[in-house]
Design a protein around this nucleic acid. Structure first.
Lengths: 352, 352
DNA sequence: AGTGCATATGACTACGCAGTCATAGCGTGT
DNA sequence: ACACGCTATGACTGCGTAGTCATATGCACT
């Protein structure tokens, strides 16, 4: 049996094992409760006692054990973020983590990242892993996860937020850009500049973003008394989008669009390159292009792409508020929040 | 006092509070120890007992509590990843998380992401937060963190791996691309094609990657009996790099480089755009450019940039192995691992 | 001086699990 | 039939903290 003095010496001398609140209490000559109070938000302790404890803690290099605290409080203060495993460093996952992480850190939450394989057949193990970590809330950004997933989490009483995706049944809180309105504004933008042969290259047809953008564009086209010239599917993949662009233009001249809405900037850049370098077309003289998202590359002189700016920072801020609201006021109705962006005019649209 | 039956009923009936191993034990009519054995890797239990426990667990929707387990075992099975807070979704943080996360998940580790503000003055709070979460290991990717940081972590006995960065004193394990060798190969590549007026735009001068790339390039230049034509600083920032490019070319013709090595693709793309659209130069006819990293955009027809491919997937794999090795065999000498990439020849270099 | 009250502190327990140790059960060999 | 050994299981404790409750201390007031 090691006696108290020896233990104290060990911890103090080597700093090898991380010190506990008991160690600090012993060194400071107080109870563990008091140490806890000093390190807890809103603990009531007299100033000199606090100083004594802080001194001892400093000496021992004491840091509260976050998970022990979790066990005791029943709150992990950890938010899970689910993103797609695939990442050609070209989607917004990085930004999501950065902005959300920054906002959440300010509120005292940390983030754990969970990766969802793109073609996940059985989400069971992933759900299992997430629930085992008792995250206080979950932000789901991966687009391919079945609705089953969110429901399972909600049954386990953990608040869920769908990021840039929503479900038709509105049973889950979500935040998205104004995909519909943005796309509709894009159609109007084309029409105002005299375009009449309008085409679209959509993203992944199984995503709400792509569906909404398509519907918005269509409604805008119809509202102008026009009909869609043609349609391609880009699946949010630059290569596939490039193929779609070729297909769109590989028809008799009077069936070719004069303007193309590409429902995502990654795709749009690839489409521009295909139009220019493979098909020898000039932008905007021969074809006009508008994208969606406003990724940094869209602003480069090489592309100079007119696009719809997704206000990422605001999205992240609202997402933070939504998830924290759900966590802290336990019962909140599922909500569907939409954040408006705006068209950024650059040089990829001609006036006819 | 709530009796056993009532509690059992509550948990079973509503599934509201997450069930514990005690609940499962009670329902299955066994001890908590047995439930633990069933859910622990390598627990010895008879087949029918296991089935009974699994049944009960299923009924109650039981999932082991990861943090309770951590408390008990002293292992969190969580790896911390420190990345820069700034992220114009244009650095490799997203890929780092994806690849590292995938590899680590296979080994049963989860990841927590910690954000380091770019201009972090006092890293104390960040270190505090990280240590409070008792991560089993830490991968540091943020380039601007003082060496003090890693040392502090090592004093707390947590294995640290520097990703794409190293310290001169070799006291911390690190993994990098072959920055020196790659840059030197790039110099040789230029020289072989007849270039004699070579310039460089470096990254952030306080990073090992930039220093190594510069030294490698310089040594390559000197080995060919040449001297550097000129040098700019891009700070890994596209805007600053563009300015540097302008400065490089804004001199009398015989002091202008015929070839420029830009020590990072993000910068290189911005440099190309500036050369072309602001200075009216053709690439490669008027200036040749080579980048470093091989980001996806470098392959786009608009840029078609010759560059040095950073084998990201392999880097992540080695990083995974290194950090896990450090964790599992407690005492490992600090190592410095270097992974070689290769030049990817595209169309941004002319033969004179 | 005695009562009441607020404040600061300590003893103790719960949180959910893993692991240690003890023991019941059972078969084997002599 | 008895001792022995092996396996499967249960009782119990520790991990580090928060929070509850009890209590000592000091102070104002009657």
């Amino acid at each position: 049996m090691i006696n108290v003095e020896d233990e104290l010496f060990m911890n103090e001398g080597t700093g090898s094992q991380s010190a506990t609140s008991h160690d600090v209490a012993r060194l400071a000559g107080v109870s563990q409760s008091t140490v806890s109070r000093v390190f807890r938000r809103g603990g009531v302790v007299s100033p000199d006692m606090r100083a004594r404890v802080m001194d001892a803690a400093q000496t021992l290099g004491y840091r509260p054990h976050a998970f022990a605290r979790s066990l005791s409080t029943g709150q992990s203060r950890i938010i899970g973020i689910v993103i797609l495993e695939k990442n050609r460093h070209q989607d917004y996952s990085g930004s999501l983590i950065t902005w959300l992480g920054k906002n959440l850190a300010e509120k005292g939450y940390q983030i754990m990242v969970f990766l969802a394989p793109e073609d996940i057949a059985d989400p069971g193990p992933l759900i299992q892993t997430i629930l085992e970590h008792r995250v206080d809330g979950l932000v789901i950004s991966a687009i391919n996860i079945s609705s089953h997933f969110a429901e399972e989490c909600q049954r386990a009483r953990i608040p869920v937020l769908l990021f840039n995706r929503h479900q038709t049944d509105r049973s889950v809180t979500s935040i998205t850009t104004d995909d519909y309105g943005g796309a509709r504004a894009i159609a109007e933008h084309f029409v105002e500049r005299g375009h009449q042969r309008l085409s679209i290259i959509v993203g992944r047809e199984d995503t709400s973003t792509s569906q909404d953008r398509e519907q918005g564009f269509l409604d805008g086209v119809h509202a102008a008394g026009l009909t869609l010239c043609s349609r391609g599917v880009g699946a949010y993949d630059p290569t596939i989008a490039a193929e779609a662009a070729s297909a769109l233009m590989g028809v008799p001249a009077d069936n070719r669009p004069s303007a193309v809405f590409v429902a995502g900037d990654q795709m749009a850049l690839a489409v521009m390159d295909t139009l220019r370098f493979r098909l020898g077309l000039r932008i905007p003289e021969d074809v006009s292009v508008i994208g969606f998202d406003d990724i940094p590359e869209a602003a480069m002189p090489s592309f100079n792409l007119t696009t719809y700016r997704l206000p990422f920072r605001r999205l992240a801020r609202v997402a933070t508020d939504l998830i924290i609201e759900q966590i802290e006021s336990s019962k909140v109705e599922p909500r569907r929040e939409v954040v408006e962006g705006a068209i950024v005019e650059r040089g990829s649209v001609a006036s006819l």
